[in-house]
């Protein structure tokens, strides 16, 4: 990193560092402040954990290849923020460096902890040799032709599903799913109640998963209790009682 980049990075705005009243509320553990901090930095942390990074341990260099599955990242993000929101971690933040840097340090430490504890399957780490030591490059980034064709097929099916969506659900869909606004925002924008928007979302999800099931995407997916299985259990119980 050259000097110019360093100065530029230092000058970038940081929500927590540059807002003293928010920083005070954050240090006190005020929930509104914690929520603000979470939604400010979460997306960057997701990207950081997906991309991966290199680290140095016991005199050797390693690369953490990033999390591949969404549930791994979601779990890691909640764990990292739980550590970052602990009282001692909140007090330990100096309020001088960007908070993002502080958060990423916690993330790195978590990955290194898991690596040292040798939890197999939890993280994908490889050792770096002298040649690729200088810069971390993630493995397996490009998609295979099969994956690309699968993506295209899925895109088509989503398009087909959206064409059949009722107009009121379609408006909600645009705001909530495409624009990515919160349920509260969607309720305000559409002048609907919180309950109604929640129901809209559940309806879309249910219809979509059922549609995908009809396209053969899920084997054995069902929203309702399986009647046949219940019947079998009931028959077995009755049989057991009378034999």
């Amino acid at each position: 990193m050259n000097r110019y980049t360093a100065v530029k990075r230092m000058n970038q705005m940081d929500l927590l560092r540059d807002n003293r009243s928010l920083l005070d509320a954050f240090r006190r553990g005020d929930e509104v402040a914690l929520r603000q901090v979470y939604f400010e930095y979460a997306e960057a942390l997701f990207a950081f954990l997906k991309k991966g990074f290199s680290f140095h341990s016991r005199g050797r260099n390693f690369a953490f290849n990033g999390y591949q599955a969404s549930w791994q990242i979601e779990d890691a993000v909640q764990d990292i923020f739980m550590r970052a929101f602990k009282d001692e971690a909140r007090q330990a933040y100096d309020g001088l460096r960007p908070y993002k840097t502080y958060l990423f340090t916690i993330a790195r430490n978590r990955v290194m902890d898991l690596f040292r504890k040798e939890k197999p399957g939890r993280i994908d780490v490889r050792e770096l040799n002298e040649v690729d030591d200088s810069e971390f490059v993630k493995d397996g980034e490009a998609k295979t032709p099969e994956q690309l064709s699968g993506d295209r097929e899925l895109e088509e099916q989503v398009k087909q599903f959206l064409e059949g969506l009722a107009p009121d659900l379609n408006t909600f869909f645009q705001i909530r799913f495409v624009e990515g606004r919160s349920l509260e925002d969607a309720a305000i924008a559409l002048k609907l109640t919180d309950y109604r928007v929640k129901r809209h979302e559940q309806q879309i999800r249910k219809q979509f998963f059922q549609f995908m099931q009809s396209c053969g995407y899920f084997g054995g997916y069902s929203f309702r209790d399986r009647g046949v299985e219940k019947l079998i259990v009931a028959t077995l119980l009755t049989y057991g009682r009378f034999c």
């Binding site: 979470y38 939604f39 979460a42 997701f46 990242i73 909640q78």
Partner: peptide
């Protein structure tokens, strides 16, 4: 995903 992790936290 971001909302889910936030809800968990």
């Amino acid at each position: 995903s971001v909302e889910r992790a936030g809800q968990a936290i």
